[in-house]
């Protein structure tokens, strides 16, 4: 199981800015290990962020997204104390869901 995400969300003038730092190896499938065998690809493929049950962002990643992916975006609405939920799924079926509180 992967480490928890770090989620920061802040509302300013009716717009909530969300910053997410995921913890994931993001192995490309191009790299070779010491013995010359290709390290199999292992990367987050889908990310979904919801607020109040509404999807505020849906993303699809390829292996070219950096290790420990960072993602920032803004959406209209959101109030202090409300939760933003972020989930990801990787290409091996691993999942992780975490919540952040809007400040």
């Amino acid at each position: 199981m992967a480490d928890p995400m770090k989620i920061r969300a802040a509302n300013k003038d009716g717009v909530t800015e969300v910053k997410i730092l995921m913890s994931h190896e993001m192995e490309t499938g191009q790299r070779k290990d010491a013995s010359g065998a290709i390290v199999p690809a292992h990367f987050i493929s889908e990310v979904t962020a919801t607020w109040n049950g509404k999807v505020v962002l849906q993303g699809e990643f390829g292996p070219a997204v950096s290790k420990n992916p960072y993602l920032a975006f803004k959406f209209k609405g959101g109030a202090k104390g409300e939760k933003v939920t972020v989930s990801w799924v990787d290409n091996k079926g691993d999942k992780r869901t975490d919540e952040g509180t809007i400040a």
């Binding site: 509404k54 849906q58 070219a64 997204v65 950096s66 992916p69 993602l71 209209k76």
Partner: peptide, 14 residues
């Protein structure tokens, strides 16, 4: 980008 979300995305790539 659903309605209500700003089309401003920051991420990091290789």
């Amino acid at each position: 980008i659903p309605e209500g979300t700003e089309a401003t995305i920051t991420t990091r790539v290789k």
